Simulated assay, not measured.
Amino acid sequence: MNELTFQNLQEKEMSFEQVFDRIIKFMKLNPQGNYRLMIGTDSQVHHDYTLFITGIVIQNEGKGAWACIRRVYIQRKMEQLHERISKETSLTEEVVALFTEERKNCMIDLILPFIYQGATFTMEGHIDIGAGKLNKTKIYVEEMVARIESLGLEPKIKPNSFVASSYANRYTK
């Protein structure tokens, strides 16, 4: 599968251009909404490969969402936790980079006329790590959060990183 193709339950083999068009179409349904564009990646080590799933979710809070995933296979078992977490963050960064300034402005321009009626738009990077005392990934929180912040996104970690830890996770099995 081409690494830059996306899919969801309705459509397979979508280009990023098609994904972006679906996001714009979803936002145009209710431009006065409260939108969160969330991107996050999870992984699962399988017998002889590691599967990474990056989720893209556009949510109009309280009024639904549209989502898709991107699959990336690495043909080896990536058992080192830091390497896997770092690769997850890199794949999130790769998809975030597709949302150019022009594309971000296109999304913002849709809601701009409705800002004074309460319309909002935020972009979040969901990281499948947690800061809890017993969480093995807590030592990577500072590093991965800094990477997501450097992209201008609001970083979210467990339990608030549901695009990575729940939506993408569902497809890694």
Rank of each mutant, 00 (worst) to 15 (best):
L98A: 06
A146T: 03
C68N: 09
M123V: 07
Q75M: 11
E3F: 08
E142P: 00
M38Q: 14
M107I: 06
K28Y: 05
R71G: 04
L91C: 11
I85W: 01
I108Y: 13
M38I: 07
F52K: 04
T137I: 03
L9T: 11
Q44W: 01
A65W: 01
I127R: 05
Y167L: 15
Q44H: 01
F26I: 06
R147G: 04
Q59T: 12
E143I: 01
K12R: 08
G55R: 03
L151M: 15
K156R: 15
D42P: 09
Q44S: 10
E101Q: 09
L29G: 13
W66C: 10
M38L: 12
R76A: 12
E13L: 06
I127H: 06
A146I: 00
M107P: 03
I58H: 04
Y73R: 13
M144A: 11
G152L: 08
N105W: 02
Q75T: 09
R103Q: 04
D42E: 15
T120Y: 00
Y35Q: 10
R36F: 13
V95F: 11
H82M: 06
T50P: 06
Y116A: 08
C106V: 02
L4G: 12
G55M: 06
K28W: 05
M144L: 07
T92R: 00
Q18A: 13
D42I: 09
Y73Q: 12
K28S: 12
I115M: 05
P155V: 02
E79T: 15
R36V: 15
I56G: 07
M1D: 05
R147I: 08
Q75V: 01
N135F: 01
E88D: 02
N160S: 14
I24E: 12
E83N: 12
F16G: 01
E17R: 08
D128A: 09
G40C: 12
E93Q: 14
A168H: 06
E94W: 11
R71Y: 10
Y73I: 13
M38W: 00
R147C: 05
L81S: 08
L134Q: 05
E3L: 14
Q32H: 15
I129V: 14
S150Y: 02
A97H: 04
I85R: 14
C106Y: 01
K156T: 11
M107S: 03
Q59F: 00
K104I: 09
F99G: 04
D42M: 13
Q59N: 09
M38H: 01
E79N: 11
Q32T: 11
Y171D: 02
Q75W: 14
E13G: 10
I24H: 01
T89F: 02
T172G: 04
T54R: 07
F20D: 02
Q80N: 15
F162A: 07
L91R: 07
S90Q: 15
E13W: 04
F52E: 02
L110R: 10
F26W: 08
V141S: 03
M27G: 14
G40H: 11
F162H: 13
E88G: 02
H46Q: 15
V45S: 00
L9S: 12
R36C: 14
T41A: 10
Q18H: 07
I108L: 11
I53T: 12
A65P: 00
V163G: 03
K156P: 07
R84E: 13
E143P: 00
N60C: 10
K12I: 01
I74P: 00
Q18V: 08
V163Q: 07
I139L: 04
